[in-house]
Write a protein that binds this DNA or RNA. Structure first.
Lengths: 345, 345
DNA sequence: GAATTTTTGATGTACGTAAATCAAAAATCC
DNA sequence: GGATTTTTGATTTACGTACATCAAAAATTC
């Protein structure tokens, strides 16, 4: 059987109360006694029963998630995952609130962060927009002892505790590698479609993509980036123009959202099969396009994993514990039509 | 606050003892009373506090993992993950034992299963070899009320409770898709290297690979399968022969283990860059080969996920609970040199 | 060495559930 | 309607930890 506090008390020859004082860093223990207890803990290999401890403490973690509003499928999926986590809140001793802010709007985001601060949560998870006022707001939260985790899109240089998201430079590189290889010897330039250069994840994907293209496929011409604001209608118009202007277009890398617009533009023009399209995020729309062949490969970050990781990290930080970075790393999934996960109900 | 058994008792107007009888299916409750309690549970949205319940029960789950012996890197990684789970056993209330059997040896595996049965565990996880005697042994375990999960390689048609592994047909299809696209218009046949056709996972990968090649890339010639027994030395000899015999070889799909042999044969022959190699499982060796470019793509199943899923399922089955299949689905990871996870310490 | 402060022990309650016992009440049978 | 069986209530103990209180013992100070 696994040792308990009683066993430690017996082993160390002290009372239960003293063991408790040592375990929970309560004052009033001589250092010799403390040593005795710590030796007993080490000797028996005692580990606190977290379930029993949480039960006794009855502690809960009030957390706030700040997510962009709008019809972006990925973000709505992310929100669904947060709601799923809310359903588990009883078991996980969390108390989660969702705050919605306009997409790509730094002032609104900063205001929402300060709003969140008023509620004195244990932690805040936020899909960041890169701006000084946002970084400043994050700093204020941290000063109040509120843990802050950036979600999906990071805010480097700020004082956030952790970033729960994928390595977007690697994602861009992967997209570049796939694009280069899929195109093989085929002629023609490649277009890049982003949401907004205000968010870090998009910038990084672009950086990674360009790096691989120039290193490994230097002959391929990359057209200037087009920003679609993650808005399907705008994206469709932009792609219409691209297709019209570049009759020899070989590939499109869509590194943001708004895939619906991309897909309908390609299909409308009858160039879905001819053009190699690589996009991000597995949503019902992008999934369908992958199956029909309009999209050739999808890079995905698992929103569920990201949300669960953010919660784990926030709880740990709120308790002043460190996290095992490797364990919280979010992987980049690559989906072809052949390895799509079965659709969930 | 979340409702407790006391709240249900009050709401239903019965005693705590009666609530307990209903919750734990104990006898001696009239159906009218049972209904009353169940309505109260539904009305209050009561969910059992699993942590508290486990604490009170003090239940542990004795589990046995049966793994193939030998120097197969993937299997050793799998074993390491099982050992990691053993380290967590206190927190998870499991008591895990590992049994090692020779690889691809059905009689030995069947004997090990019956051995495991003698220890009356709550559940057994096994890397299956497909043979009637193995299926028969699994049946005996199930008759004794022992939960059985196949791990990595399945045993379809047997009475196992669950398969914790990837969809290997999809994995083979994915490999085929990548191979076809990476080769593009390049000339030359493709070789296929397996471990043994005695294990289901290898058969299925081959099936998926051949299906995609004939559907999507019908012009490409696929050479007859070569079996390397997951043995690096044997694999190297076989690949030497292949390279010698087919001077125009365009690609190699290695669907089993023994990547070390494949890599050294390719590099020795100076044809590492010219031949498109797709292999399975991320190990230190295959990782290095991916970085240098000898291997072009790696398909991977995350051994840690598989082990943890197997344990969750075994615990649930031991308690007679059902599992959410979608939640236990293991994904197929695709790694290129650009999206390799950072090496862990 | 007496007074004071610090350290330690003993004990009890709480968290939410499981499981058992015994008595009381209600339903069923003849 | 009395005897019997079934159902329900009341109460207790336990799981492993947290946390509080009060008294006793030990160490420190003057």
């Amino acid at each position: 059987m696994r040792p308990t506090v009683h066993d430690i008390a017996a082993e160390a020859g002290v009372s239960l109360a003293t063991v408790d004082r040592v375990l929970n860093n309560r004052p009033g223990v001589r250092s010799v006694t403390r040593d005795k207890v710590e030796r007993a803990i080490a000797a028996l290999g005692y580990v606190r029963d977290v379930a029993a401890a949480n039960l006794a403490k009855g502690r809960t973690y009030p957390l706030i998630f700040i997510l962009p509003a709008g019809e972006n499928s990925f973000m709505r999926g992310l929100e669904a995952e947060v709601r799923a986590a809310m359903a588990r809140s009883a078991a996980e001793r969390t108390d989660i609130t969702i705050l919605s802010v306009p997409a790509f709007d730094a002032p609104a985001l900063a205001a929402a962060l300060l709003d969140a601060r008023e509620q004195r949560p244990a932690g805040v998870a936020v899909v960041a927009v890169e701006a000084p006022e946002v970084a400043e707001a994050v700093k204020r939260l941290r000063e109040d002892g509120i843990a802050v985790v950036t979600l999906v899109s990071d805010l480097p240089g700020s004082e956030r505790d952790h970033f729960a998201g994928v390595d977007n430079i690697a994602a861009g590189r992967t997209a570049g590698s796939l694009m280069g290889r899929f195109l093989g010897g085929r002629e023609g330039p490649v277009a890049v479609l982003a949401g907004s250069m205000l968010v870090r994840d998009h910038c990084e994907r672009l950086e990674g993509f360009r790096a691989v293209m120039s290193e490994d496929f230097p002959g391929r011409r990359i057209l200037p980036v087009v920003e679609g604001q993650d808005n399907p209608a705008l994206v469709e118009t932009l792609v219409d123009t691209l297709l019209d202007k570049h009759r020899d277009l070989a590939g499109i890398y869509s590194l943001g959202a708004g895939n619906r617009g991309l897909v309908s533009a390609l299909e409308k023009a009858g160039r879905a099969k001819a053009i190699c399209a690589i996009a991000h995020e597995l949503t019902p729309h992008s999934r369908a396009a992958l199956v029909t062949g309009t999209i050739d490969a999808l890079l995905n970050q698992n929103a569920g994993h990201e949300v669960r990781s953010a919660i784990r990290v926030l709880k740990a930080k709120a308790d002043g514990l460190s996290v095992i970075a490797a364990q919280e790393r979010i992987r980049i999934d690559i989906f072809l039509k052949d390895n799509l996960p079965v659709e969930q109900a």
